[in-house]
Amino acid sequence: MTFITATPAKLDSEALTSKSTSLWQITWHRLFRRKSSVIGMSILAMLVTTALTAQWIAPYSPTLSMLDASPPQNLQKRSSPCIHLLGCAQDQPQHIMGTDGNIRDEFSRMLYGARLSLMIGLSTVSFAIFIGTVLGALAGYFGGWIDNLIMRVMDVLLAFPSLLLAIAIVTVLGPGLINALLAIGIVSIPAYARVMRASVLSVREMDFVSATRSLGGNTYEILFKCILPNALTPLIVQGTLGIASAILDAAALSFLGLGAQPPTPEWGSMLGAERNQVFTAPHLVFYPGLAIMLTVLSFNLIGDGLRDALDPRLVHVSS
């Protein structure tokens, strides 16, 4: 089937890559056959495009007050959306999503927010995967008291509801985007450590690992060249779903005022800053929340699609 049966004698990189290319092709193919993952990938593609091109498509700077724009626009605070195509008077300046409490263009802030949101998801999950993988690999490979110590610490981390632990950590570190990211990263470590440890345990005693060991492979080689590729599949699935929950948690922290601080155009903090205006300026609450939901949804859909596409039990069903 897949990696696990890679023959021990031919454990050179060539054998591995030729096998893995085909797995990725199958996965890719299956991913595109699922409607929900195609929807997820389309949303994500739009987000990535927005994030990359924000500085060209945004009509204004995300932190520029319209009073300081050239020419200065004399607008009310939190003015409603004005779109010329939909009948808004031509002499009014166009603001597709209206302006916020500091008379900044909401649409520009939303565009820059996409950049921040993706950055938040990717950085926290990379951090958590890196630490979690190393810890899980050590625990699974060495066993004994190392395993016990690491996994008990992970149990303690899991004993707190994740948002609550993140809040406690940010309280200690002080509010701010970087600290919030660190907190969410720390909170999500146990999931990856567990996945990695389980994979290590399942392949540690397999023949191709013993073969590498008898051929003189050192611990580093065994862990990262034999075992890690086998753990990659569950890590990718967990990671994709992890990005979704990291973005959601980061938005929640920012909403509570513990994450990104104004004037950073972060969706959660934009929503939090205007939450008391929901009855007078609902657009300032509606758009950021919708954006958070769509972003999280896209990663959830892709994650679910990947889980099914990478499931070796389904190989014969759909290929």
């Binding site: 929900s36 979704a244 959601l248 938005a251 929640a252 909403f255 959660g268 929503l271 939090g272 939450r275 929901v278 009855f279 609902p282 609450v285 509606f286 950021p288 929340g289 919708l290 958070i292 939901m293 769509l294 999280v296 949804l297 959830n300 859909l301 679910d304």
Partner: peptide, 26 residues
């Protein structure tokens, strides 16, 4: 159901709460 369930797990609770308040109270 599944579409709705996927949207449900991706929902920022605080946003949904504010939107519900807007719809049902205003």
């Amino acid at each position: 159901t599944m579409l709705w369930a996927n949207i449900g797990v991706s929902m920022p609770v605080f946003w949904l709460g504010l939107m519900l308040a807007y719809v049902f109270a205003l």
